[in-house]
Design a binder for these strands. Structure first.
Length: 478
RNA sequence: GGGGAUGUAGUCUAGCCUGGUCAGGAUUCAAGCUUUGGGAGCUUGAGGCCCCAGUUCAAAUCUGGGCAUCCUCACCA
C-alpha cells in the first residue's frame, strides 16, 4: 500500500478513463510539457513540449519550401482601421482583441494580432503590381493573442498561442483553390504520417467558416472524450480581402484585376491533441517521428558489474547517436524509478542493459506505446530499433484510427442524433447547411457541425428541419 | 459573460465549523551512508497558510474585495 501511495505522488493520480480533464492536466504538468503563466490563459511551453513544436516546424518548413513558400515576419500590432476594412472579419475578431494603451494623444488605436490577414495584406497591396508578381506565397511562424473570456486549457485554449499562418496570392481563382486544398493535404500528411493522428477532411459550413473567407477547409480529429478538435484549417478567401485591401494587378490582358487569396494555419494546440490521443495512464506517448530523443538507455547497475555494464552502455550510445539516444546513468535512482520517469515523459523506446544481458550478449528493448519487451542481440540493435520505431508509429496510428472509426455513428433521425451526441460520438447525418438550423442544433445539444466531408455525394432530408441537405459531420468541439 | 466548486512548501494533504501552543504529516529537494532487473532504506537539513484590506488583544481559521485553478454553459484555433 505504501508503495502504491508513492507511485501516486510521483506519477499520475487519476486514470485517463476516470477523469479525462484532470488526467490531461497532470500529464502536461508532470511530464513537464508546460506550466501555467502568471496571467490567466497564458502558458509556459517547457523544453519537453517545445522540442516537439520545433520538430513540427522543421518538418513543415521542408514541405512549404518545396511548394515555394517563403517564411517572413510581420508586425505584432495592427491598427484599428485595418480590422474595420473587412466587415465579417472585424465582427469575428472584435470581441477578443487586446488593445494597446495609447502613448500619445490622437494616436490610432492598435491591437495585438489575433491573426495577420490585415497587416500582411496591407503590405501585399504595395508589393503586387503585375501578374509577374504572382503567385506570392508567404508563411510566418508567430504568436497570436485572442482574449478568450474563460475556459482556458493548456495547449488547447490559451489566450496567446504559437502557430504558422500561410498567406498566398494568385492570379486565378482555380490556382488559389487548388493550392488551398493542396496545403490542406499537406496538413493531413503531417497529422497522420508524423503525429499518428487520423483526421477527417472536409469543408466548413457557412456558420463555422472563418470570418472573411469564401470557403474554409478543415481537418478534424476526435479526442478520447468524444470531442472533436480542429487540427488545422485552410481558407479560400476568394477576393474578399483583395477587394478591401486593394490587392490588384495588371494582367497579361493589360487590365486591372483583383487577386485571389488563400490562407492556412495550424497551432500549438496540435501538441494538446498528441497528448490526448496517444497519452495513457503512465504519461505522454510521443509519436516516434517527432520525438527528438527516440531511445533512452537504462543500465542496470550492480556494484560488481557496474563498470562493465556502463562501458557497454556507452558503446551502445555511441552506436545509436542517430536516434539521439542518451544514457540515464544516475546512480541515486533505481532502475524502476527511471523506467517510470521516462514512460511519463513518453520516450518511444527504452533499452535495458544489465549483467544478465551482457552474459547473453543481448539487451531488452521496450516499446513505450505497448509496453512490449523484447530481448535482442546486441549486433542487431540498430536494425531492431529502426523496426520498432516504425512499428510504434503504425500501432499508434491504427489504434487512433480504430477509435475514430468506432466513434463515428450515422444518425438517420433527430432522436438518433441526440442519442449519439449524448453517447459522446461524432455523428454523420444529413443536414440542410443553414446557419439557423445549425444554431438550433447547437442550442439543444451543444454539438456543432465539424465539416462537410469531402467525397460524399449522399443527399437527403435534413434530420432537424427536413429540408434538402448533404452529409455533415457533427460533434461537440474543443 | 452566466452558474457551481476550490485555494495551506515543487506535489498531495491535516488543521478552518468553535480564532489563541514553534501550522502536523507524506512526497520532493540538498548532503551523507547504503542500494539499483518496475517508483528501495536510514540520518541530517531546506521549503508553506494565494494577494490586499477589515474585525480582533490575537486570523490559516471570521468578513469584504481581488487574483488564480477546476467543472459547466455561451464564444472561439
Amino acid at each position: 500500500m505504501a508503495e502504491k501511495e508513492k507511485e501516486q505522488m510521483l506519477g499520475l493520480t487519476v486514470k485517463k478513463e476516470d477523469d479525462f480533464s484532470e488526467w490531461y492536466n497532470q500529464v502536461v504538468l508532470k511530464a513537464q510539457l508546460a506550466d501555467f503563466g502568471p496571467i490567466k490563459g497564458f502558458m509556459v511551453i517547457r523544453p519537453n513540449a517545445f522540442q516537439l513544436w520545433e520538430k513540427i516546424q522543421n518538418i513543415f518548413n521542408e514541405v512549404i519550401q518545396e511548394k515555394k513558400v517563403k517564411n517572413a515576419y510581420f508586425p505584432l500590432l495592427i491598427p484599428k482601421s485595418f480590422f474595420e476594412k473587412e466587415a465579417s472579419h472585424v465582427e469575428g475578431f472584435a470581441p477578443e482583441l487586446a488593445w494597446i494603451e495609447n502613448k500619445e494623444e490622437g494616436e490610432e488605436k492598435v491591437a495585438i494580432r489575433p491573426t495577420s490577414e490585415t497587416i500582411m495584406y496591407d503590405s501585399y497591396a504595395k508589393w503586387i503590381r503585375s501578374w509577374r508578381d504572382l503567385p506570392l506565397r508567404i508563411n510566418q511562424w508567430c504568436n497570436v493573442l485572442r482574449w478568450e473570456v474563460k475556459q482556458t486549457k493548456l495547449f488547447l485554449r490559451t489566450r496567446e498561442f504559437l502557430w504558422q499562418e500561410g498567406h498566398c496570392v494568385y492570379e486565378t481563382e482555380k490556382e488559389c483553390l487548388d493550392e488551398a486544398l493542396m496545403f490542406l493535404n499537406e496538413y493531413k500528411n503531417l497529422m497522420e504520417n508524423y503525429l499518428a493522428i487520423p483526421v477527417i477532411t472536409g469543408e466548413k459550413t457557412e456558420k463555422e467558416r472563418f470570418p472573411g473567407a469564401k470557403q474554409t477547409f478543415t481537418l478534424e480529429a476526435l479526442m478520447p472524450d468524444g470531442k472533436a478538435l480542429q487540427m488545422g484549417t485552410s481558407h479560400n478567401l476568394g477576393q474578399n480581402f483583395s477587394k478591401t485591401f486593394k490587392i490588384s494587378f495588371l494582367g497579361k490582358d493589360k487590365k486591372e484585376h483583383l487577386a485571389w487569396q488563400n490562407s492556412w494555419g495550424f497551432s500549438t494546440r496540435l501538441l494538446g491533441a498528441i497528448i490526448m490521443v496517444h497519452g495513457d495512464n503512465k504519461g505522454i506517448v510521443v509519436p516516434p517521428k517527432i520525438a527528438r530523443e527516440k531511445i533512452v538507455i537504462v543500465p542496470i547497475l550492480f556494484e560488481a558489474s557496474k563498470e562493465k555494464v556502463l562501458m557497454k552502455a556507452k558503446e551502445l550510445n555511441e552506436k545509436l547517436k542517430k536516434f539521439n539516444s542518451f544514457i540515464d546513468e544516475r546512480e541515486e535512482y533505481s532502475a524502476g524509478f527511471k523506467f517510470n520517469e521516462w514512460e511519463l515523459k513518453g520516450i518511444p523506446l527504452r533499452l535495458e542493459l544489465g549483467p544478465k544481458d551482457l552474459e547473453k550478449n543481448q539487451c531488452i528493448l521496450v516499446k513505450r506505446n505497448s509496453g512490449e519487451k523484447k530481448a535482442i542481440k546486441l549486433n542487431d540493435v540498430e536494425k531492431e530499433i529502426e523496426k520498432a520505431l516504425n512499428e510504434i508509429h503504425k500501432e499508434m496510428f491504427l489504434k487512433a484510427e480504430k477509435f475514430l472509426k468506432e466513434n463515428i455513428v450515422k444518425a438517420n433521425s433527430w432522436n438518433e442524433f441526440i442519442k449519439a451526441i449524448e453517447g459522446k460520438k461524432m455523428v454523420e447525418c444529413i443536414h440542410c447547411l443553414s446557419p439557423e438550423c445549425e444554431e438550433e442544433i447547437k442550442n439543444t445539444t451543444t454539438a456543432s457541425s465539424r465539416c462537410i466531408p469531402f467525397n460524399s455525394k449522399e443527399k437527403g432530408k435534413c434530420i432537424k428541419c427536413g429540408k434538402e441537405g448533404k452529409k455533415v459531420l457533427f460533434a461537440k468541439a474543443y
